[in-house]
Structure formats: C-alpha cells, structure tokens
C-alpha cells in the first residue's frame, strides 16, 4: 500500500515535469511574445503546482512529516504566476513589440485610438 502511494506521488511529480517540458516546447516553437506567454504562464504554473503537491503529500503520508511551507509556496505561486505573466505581456504591448503577422485583429489598438480621439475633442 505504501509502495503504491509512493509510486502515485512519483507519477504526480513526473506529470509536473512533463508539463514543464511542454511549456519549454511552447516557448521555443510559438511565434511571438504573447503566444509564448500564453503557453508558459499556464502550463509551467500547473507543472510546478503538481510537483509541489506531490512533494507535500510524499512527506506527509510516507514520512509522516507535515510542513506547511510547501503549501505556502503552492498558494504563493498560484497567486503570483498569472500576475507576472500579465505584467510581462502588458509591458511587451506598451513597448510596442509587434504581434505575429498572421494574428487576426488587435482590439486594444482601436481602443487606444478611440481614447485619443475622445481626448482631442
């Protein structure tokens, strides 16, 4: 039974490593900043959350040692990783990094132009 649980937690960690390798493939293959940001800020976050959960459960159930620092790191990463993704993407847009040339439309540009026209009136 304990051996089964050990294997289960190890597979959880392996799943997290697979998700982080998926985000690495995304960061190389995708064409522009925004799509890369999309790939990375989701799958890398889920991967590290899975790894931290596996670590916490391993030390809690197998070793009988409960440590809430891992859970604190879990919650902190879950809160801050999308925020940092958003900040990077906004900084990229405001410093005028171009979109992929095949992307269909850019709603934010129209909105900025409209705001400027309203300002000038």
């Amino acid at each position: 039974m304990t051996e089964m649980l050990k294997i289960l937690f190890a597979v959880m960690i392996l799943f997290g490593a697979l998700l982080s390798i998926l985000s690495a493939i995304g960061i190389v293959r995708l064409p522009d900043v925004y799509t890369r940001n999309h790939a990375v800020s989701k799958s890398a976050t889920l991967g590290v959350l899975s790894i931290l959960l596996g670590t916490f459960l391993y030390f809690w159930i197998i070793e009988g040692y409960m440590n809430f620092r891992v859970i604190l790191g879990f919650v902190f990463l879950f809160m801050t990783s999308p925020v940092s993704g958003h900040l990077i993407s906004r900084a990229a847009y405001n410093s005028k990094v171009p979109l992929w040339e095949k992307s269909a439309r850019d709603d934010l540009k129209d909105k900025e132009k409209l705001a400027k026209e309203n300002m000038s009136q």
Partner: peptide, 16 residues
Amino acid sequence: SDRIQALDVLGINIIS
C-alpha cells in the same frame, strides 16, 4: 520581454 519571460520560467523550473 522574451528574456524576462524566460527568466521567470527559469525560476519556476528551478523551484520544481
């Protein structure tokens, strides 16, 4: 921005 993104992911991978 690509480089900042890469550094962020690097930190997350090091945590894992």
